[in-house]
């Protein structure tokens, strides 16, 4: 059962998906459902003995293409609608003990192409208004399966954070005639202290307004709205800069660094969004090697994030762990 209930106080939908309580929780590595099915081994979710990158519908989705009717009837104040949408799982590699940071940049490049293909496919669905590509990594984030994977949610509406960014971008364009993120990027480059990594097509920065100590935003230098707008070179450069950032995360504390990675692209509802600028946001929950940044009273109850660090100092720390990415052309491009 999955349904969408309207919160009239915040003006946003809440997904109710009670079946997710039953999902697999941190199984032993020998019984990982996301590994390939080995000959004579137990059948995993993937009925093949190996794979490169696999995408499939989540067994425990928050939204589904054919949802059952809601469990309750809505009212004028409390509207309810079926939880229609798509929840996909993206397996990055058959190697259970790997992570995106440990994968070669060529594999991340393949993943960029798969993400692009999924965006292109899912945006065709008439009930999908927004395609959200993300990864939750690490037990600190609450992941239930440690095999390297990400997710794609295709929502039947534009989610609240994106709606806010769209409004801010539109207001900025109306006031200045310019793109908000192009201006943010120009100001970050002018200052320079918060830039973590850079290549021909992308800039990674801990932004001036970072809410998490090691929050990184990757922004394309060109004014793009979605992954599908990227050139062949930009796809490669995106893979490179993702590798630079998440490998630096791992080197920072010499651990497999937990994070949430989220792609902010234009909506897919058919309206024009030339004022919006695609970017990727990383929210790592750690503020030190052993201490978590909790979303406590002020953050959760009032919406005011309190960052105990200076982005300029954290960017310098992270930048010191960035190393150039070397492509192995034998692995392909």
């Amino acid at each position: 059962m999955s349904e969408l209930r309207w919160n009239p106080l915040l003006g946003e939908w809440v997904a109710t998906a009670t079946h997710r309580q039953e999902r697999t929780f941190l199984p032993p590595a020998d019984y990982c459902p996301l590994c390939p099915t080995k000959p004579g081994g137990f059948p995993t979710e993937v009925p093949e003995s190996t794979y490169d990158i696999v995408v499939f519908l989540n067994r425990f989705p928050s939204l589904r293409p054919d949802p059952a009717p809601p469990a309750v009837e809505g009212t004028e104040l409390f509207p309810v609608r079926p939880g229609i949408g798509v929840c996909e799982v993206v397996l990055y590699t058959p190697n259970h003990d790997s992570s995106l940071a440990r994968e070669p940049v060529e594999q991340i490049h393949k993943l960029v192409r798969v993400w692009t293909d999924r965006f292109r496919e899912l945006e065709k669905l008439d009930y999908v208004d927004y395609v959200f590509i993300f990864e939750n990594k690490g037990e600190a984030i609450g992941v239930t399966l440690s095999h390297p994977h990400g997710q794609i949610y295709a929502y039947p509406f534009i989610p609240p954070h994106i709606a806010t960014e769209l409004k801010q971008s539109l207001d900025h364009q109306a006031a200045t005639g310019r793109c908000l993120i192009c201006d943010i990027l120009a100001e970050e480059r002018r200052d320079g202290r918060r830039i973590v990594a850079e290549n021909e097509s992308f800039v990674a920065t801990i932004p001036f307004y970072a809410r998490y100590p090691y929050e990184v935003h990757i922004m394309p230098a060109r004014h793009l709205q979605a992954l599908t707008d990227m050139s062949v070179n930009e796809q490669r450069d995106l893979a490179s800069i993702i590798k630079m950032v998440i490998a630096a995360y791992d080197r920072l504390f010499d651990i497999s660094f937990p994070y949430m990675m989220m792609m902010h692209q234009r909506p897919t509802d058919g309206a024009p969004y030339d004022h919006y600028h695609f970017h990727i946001e990383f929210y790592p929950p750690l503020r030190t090697k052993t201490k978590l940044k909790y979303l406590a009273g002020s953050e959760s109850g009032a919406g005011l994030f309190i960052n105990d660090t200076l982005p300029e100092e954290k960017a310098a720390e992270l930048r010191a762990h960035v190393t150039p990415v070397v492509w192995d052309e034998r692995r392909g491009r």
Partner: peptide
């Protein structure tokens, strides 16, 4: 870079009706 390695997509249907797509290059 002027040439990409071709990407292939193979889609199967699982017993419970869900799709699964294998990407190869």
């Amino acid at each position: 870079w002027t040439r990409e390695i071709p990407m292939h997509r193979r889609r199967i249907t699982l017993a419970d009706g869900r799709y699964m797509i294998f990407y190869t290059f």
